[in-house]
Amino acid sequence: ATVGSICDLNLKIPEINSSDMSAHVTSPSGRVTEAEIVPMGKNSHCVRFVPQEMGVHTVSVKYRGQHVTGSPFQFTVG
Rank of each mutant, 00 (worst) to 15 (best):
T76V: 09
F75W: 08
G55Y: 04
C46L: 00
T33E: 12
H45V: 14
Q66K: 11
A1T: 06
H57N: 14
A1P: 05
I16Q: 04
G70F: 00
R48V: 00
V68W: 06
G78V: 03
H57M: 09
R48Q: 07
I13E: 01
N43D: 15
I6R: 07
V56K: 10
S60A: 12
R31A: 13
R64M: 14
I6D: 01
G78F: 05
G65Y: 14
K62Q: 12
P39R: 07
V25L: 12
V50Y: 04
Q52W: 12
S60C: 10
V47A: 04
R31K: 14
K42I: 05
R31V: 12
R31H: 13
G65S: 12
N43W: 05
R31S: 12
Q74C: 00
R64A: 13
T2K: 09
E15H: 14
I6F: 09
V56L: 13
G65R: 10
Y63S: 15
R64G: 13
K12M: 12
I16M: 09
V3F: 04
N43C: 05
H57E: 04
M54G: 13
S18R: 05
T76I: 09
N43M: 07
E15D: 13
K62M: 14
G70H: 10
V25G: 06
S71A: 05
P39C: 10
V25C: 09
R48Y: 00
V32N: 14
T2H: 02
T58S: 12
R31L: 12
T76Q: 12
N17Y: 12
P14E: 05
K42C: 05
C46Q: 12
H45K: 10
F49R: 01
G30A: 14
S18Q: 03
V3N: 07
H57R: 01
S60M: 08
T58W: 14
I13V: 04
F49G: 00
V61R: 01
S44G: 11
V25R: 09
V68S: 04
H57A: 15
R31I: 10
D8N: 12
G41T: 04
R48G: 00
G30L: 07
M54I: 15
K62F: 15
P14M: 03
G4E: 02
I6N: 04
P14V: 04
S44C: 04
H57D: 02
S44F: 03
C7I: 09
V25T: 13
A23L: 00
S44E: 15
S44W: 05
H67S: 11
G70W: 00
N17W: 04
T2F: 14
M40I: 06
I16V: 10
S18G: 04
I6T: 08
V38W: 08
S19F: 09
T33H: 07
T76L: 08
I13A: 01
G55E: 05
T33R: 10
G55D: 11
G41P: 12
A23G: 11
S71N: 07
Q66T: 12
S60D: 14
P51V: 02
T69N: 04
P72A: 05
E15V: 10
T33K: 06
H67M: 07
D8Y: 05
I16G: 10
H45G: 09
S71Y: 00
C7T: 06
K12I: 10
P51M: 02
V61N: 02
Q74T: 15
F75Q: 15
C46Y: 03
K42N: 07
C46T: 15
G78Y: 04
G41N: 07
C7F: 14
A1S: 04
Y63I: 13
G70N: 12
F73Y: 13
K42A: 08
T58M: 15
V59W: 02
G55H: 09
T69Q: 05
P51S: 04
Q52I: 06
K12L: 09
F75Y: 11
V3P: 02
Q52E: 11
V50K: 07
S18M: 05
R64W: 08
P51I: 08
Y63H: 15
P39L: 04
P14N: 05
P72W: 00
V77L: 02
G65C: 14
S27G: 15
I6S: 06
P72E: 06
V47H: 00
R64S: 13
K12E: 15
N17A: 10
T33D: 12
I13T: 03
Q52C: 08
A1V: 06
S22F: 08
V3S: 03
V50N: 03
V56M: 11
E34I: 14
P14S: 06
G65K: 10
H57S: 14
K42E: 12
H57Q: 10
A23H: 00
V68Y: 07
I13D: 02
V47M: 02
N43Y: 07
N17F: 07
K42V: 07
P51Y: 02
I16P: 02
T2L: 04
V50A: 03
N17E: 13
R48S: 03
Q52R: 10
V47N: 02
V32K: 09
F75S: 15
P39T: 12
V50G: 02
Q66C: 10
N17G: 06
H67L: 04
T2A: 03
T58L: 15
K62S: 14
S29Y: 04
V47S: 00
N17P: 14
T58N: 14
I13Y: 00
A23S: 05
V47C: 02
H24V: 09
E53L: 08
V3M: 05
G65I: 10
A1W: 14
P51C: 02
I6A: 08
T33M: 12
K12D: 13
S18F: 05
V47D: 00
V32W: 09
R64L: 11
V3E: 05
K62P: 00
Y63V: 15
S60L: 08
F49N: 06
C46N: 15
M40R: 15
V77A: 12
E34A: 11
M40Q: 15
T76G: 10
G4I: 06
M40S: 15
A23C: 00
R64C: 09
S44L: 02
N43F: 06
P14Y: 01
V32G: 11
G55F: 03
Q66V: 09
V50W: 08
V50P: 03
F49S: 09
P39S: 11
T26K: 09
N43I: 06
T33G: 10
T33S: 11
V25Y: 08
R48L: 00
P39E: 13
H24E: 10
S5Y: 06
K12S: 11
V50C: 05
S27F: 06
R64F: 12
P28R: 03
M54N: 14
H57K: 01
C7G: 00
P51N: 07
G41L: 07
V68E: 02
T58G: 12
I6V: 12
T58D: 10
V50I: 10
C7S: 01
P72K: 14
E15C: 07
E34G: 12
Q66I: 07
G78K: 06
V3T: 03
V56G: 13
